[in-house]
Design a protein around this nucleic acid. Sequence first.
DNA 1: CCAATTTTATGACTAGGTACTAAAGGTAAT
DNA 2: ATTACCTTTAGTACCTAGTCATAAAATTGG
Lengths: 198, 198
Amino acid sequence: MRKSKRERQRLLQETIRENPFITDEELAEKFSVSVQTIRLDRLELAIPELRERIKNVARQSFADKVRALPLEEVIGDIIDIEPDASAISIFDVKEEHVFRRTRIARGHHLFAQANSLAVAVIHDELALTAKATIRFVRQVKEGERVVAKAKVAGKTAHGRTIVEVNSYVGQELVFSGTFEMYRSNIEKKDGDSNEHRD
Amino acid sequence: MRKSKRERQRLLQETIRENPFITDEELAEKFSVSVQTIRLDRLELAIPELRERIKNVARQSFADKVRALPLEEVIGDIIDIEPDASAISIFDVKEEHVFRRTRIARGHHLFAQANSLAVAVIHDELALTAKATIRFVRQVKEGERVVAKAKVAGKTAHGRTIVEVNSYVGQELVFSGTFEMYRSNIEKKDGDSNEHRD
DNA sequence: CCAATTTTATGACTAGGTACTAAAGGTAAT
DNA sequence: ATTACCTTTAGTACCTAGTCATAAAATTGG
């Protein structure tokens, strides 16, 4: 038995949502109606034609791609930097950064922001984190804006650079970390190679 | 001056690669040749027509979407777990995890794997990282497989759980960390709330 | 200058539509 | 039963962004 118009349109929407690559002809066959009926349905439901649908999917992924990988390169937007001295970045906590249930930001995103900033503040071709001690002072929730402030605090005996990073939401400290950074161009002292990372 | 055929075709490939949404007509105008010439070029270079190109972009993003967000929830595949005792996960270092220039994995991905595992091994509704001390022992390169092993090592006076995580590439230790985890259901002792995170 | 290459033009055809008009089919109320 | 209305189907003209094939024109190298 052929479904009612209402039911058919409901299923039509669902079908197209989960497979935007389906043509009107295929839909007509699926619902045992004419192609014209499908077109009337799409018109009423304001569902664009196949080609437009595909273009939309493509456009979205293209836009995503632009901010997908580059965004990985540095976590958070660096808004101020004084090489080998200090730097500031901001990071907006969005849906994809939190635990679904609690809406609390996953720690590694805060770590990533701080770590990225520690790498960036080092004025060197190759800066890698060798060690880090970090402290998550309070939870950060979805929608909050985290401001990370990095300060170069000195050097170790091995020629590593110590970077202190404190992250705030408003006036509140939410994260603090001490990063021991390996660098390739060491002005004074020497430093062996092993033990390092980004 | 109009470019030579070779040069035009080189630019054509580049143009289409960075903007697959361009039509033959627009290309013809851009290179000051006829539409037919563009079509001959595409034929020679085996570049599909606009609609096919768009469809390809859309198809790819459709496939990507399936593994995009779920992958964020836990970094690395957990292959073994004994709640409140130990756990093992593997993580394959791909292009998107490394510095472009050096092909060395960015530290926060190794941290994320270890941190995810530390959260997972805690048999609790709400487990958050409060503190961590980590050490990047050697660089990890693109293509390497990192095996992280977490072991619950004890408790602090505040009722926090200590988790030791060591990550290996083959037999080599590449990362090691000590995580102090906050948990909501504390069997014995009490623990205040602040200072925590995933 | 001539031959070969390259470019342009033209016509016929395609998929997957839009937009519009017109005709049926079914149902419900009068 | 007839009218009225909604729904469905059919058909036509037109659109975009192409394909394929053929032929003529323009350009270039030797």
